[in-house]
Amino acid sequence: MDSDPKPSTSPAPNPNPSKPPPSKEQHHRDLLNHIEAYLAKRDGVDKLLKISRYATKLILASSLLQSSNNPALYHRLKSFESSVGVSRKAFRLGKFVQDLNALRASHHHSNRHLLFTLLAYGGEGFYYFVEQFVWLAKSGLIDPKHARAFQKVSAWAELVGYFGSVALKLTDLNIIAEEESCLASSVEISRLRGIGCVEEESRLRKLREKKTMKRLSVIQDLADAVMALDDILDGNGPFSKPVFMASAGLLSALISTHKNWVSC
């Protein structure tokens, strides 16, 4: 006859064991994967080049480096800035297609919204299309004498695109503000009644994050629009100061880099 099994004295296992914190190696792997995903995107590399270019422009325009003090370094930085600008144009080959697809997939609820959509995506798409010819002219395949004319056309298209883009984003911000107000009121009422509102609070937090990103995007578009206007005026505008323009470009680059980093 078998004897009864001896009862175990070991503690019962925890049905919901907590996950151990990620190790430093795992954190580094995740960071490296994020960097890899970021650099795999066309916009990711383009924005890093943009940071490099406008940071160099800012150094050249400021008192940090005088051409008379170190002419060799000054000319190397100038050459680097110019080559990065041409490299960025190469990354835009065919990029106008994404604007065509965005325009085709857009949904407009009013004639004004349709107009802003056409200006935003149409202007930006035409800008990227013309930029291909600017790159070909600067790289020598097309007679360089046409480069200035192409640049003027692309600058106008870019400015029109930014006008439409800012208008669309301001409209979106108004819609987000209304949704945020309604959701915040709902959360406040739930708290007063002692009702749990975890889901609503999460939605409200995400909505506010979306609003912040949209505001940053408007600032980025305005900075880029100022630079486009400066190109149209051939650098003779009242705000056409090298330090100011380089700072605007660097600000735009940092904002777009942050947006791309968060989205990938």
Score class of each variant (00 low, 15 high):
Leu93Asn: 07
Ser186His: 12
Glu180Gln: 13
Thr171Cys: 00
Lys95Ile: 06
Phe133Gln: 07
Ile195Lys: 14
Val198Met: 05
Ser240Phe: 03
Glu124Gly: 06
Val226Ser: 02
Gly194Phe: 12
Gly164Thr: 01
Asn69Ile: 12
Glu199Asn: 07
Tyr38Lys: 04
Leu250Thr: 13
Ser62His: 08
Pro11Val: 06
Asp172Leu: 13
Glu124Gln: 11
Ser186Trp: 01
Gly44Thr: 13
Tyr121Trp: 10
Val97Asn: 01
Val262Asp: 08
His146Glu: 08
Ile35Met: 07
Pro17His: 05
Ala157Met: 12
Asp230Phe: 09
Ile232Lys: 07
Leu254Asp: 04
Ala184His: 10
Gly249Asn: 02
Asn70Glu: 09
Ile35Val: 15
Leu49Lys: 04
Gly123Ala: 12
Met227Val: 00
Leu159Met: 00
Glu131Phe: 03
Leu183Ser: 04
Asp4Gly: 00
Ala248His: 04
Val160Pro: 10
Gln66His: 15
Glu81Gln: 14
Ile51Ala: 14
Phe133Thr: 06
Leu64Asn: 03
Arg215His: 11
Tyr127Asp: 09
Leu31Asn: 12
Ser52Pro: 00
Ser52His: 01
Ala137Met: 01
Leu229Gln: 06
Arg203Gly: 10
Ala40Gly: 00
Lys241Thr: 14
Tyr54His: 12
Gln220Asp: 09
Ser23Arg: 06
Cys182Thr: 07
Phe80Leu: 15
Leu168Gln: 03
Gly194Asp: 11
Leu254Ala: 12
Asn174Ser: 09
His146Tyr: 12
Lys152Leu: 06
His108Ser: 05
Ala155Arg: 02
Gly94Met: 06
Asp30Glu: 13
Ser23Tyr: 11
Leu119His: 00
Val86Lys: 01
His109Asp: 08
Leu183Ile: 06
Asn70Ala: 10
Thr56Asn: 01
Pro7Thr: 08
Ala225Asp: 02
Asn69Met: 03
Phe91Tyr: 10
Leu73Asn: 13
Ser181Met: 02
Asn260Ile: 08
Leu48Phe: 05
Phe163Ser: 06
Asn174Glu: 11
Thr117Trp: 00
Leu31Asp: 09
Asp234Glu: 11
Leu114Lys: 14
Ile175Gln: 14
Ser18Phe: 04
Arg191Lys: 15
Ser18Cys: 05
Lys169Trp: 00
Asp30Gly: 05
Lys19Asn: 02
Met1Glu: 02
Ala90Ile: 14
Asp30Ile: 02
Glu199Val: 09
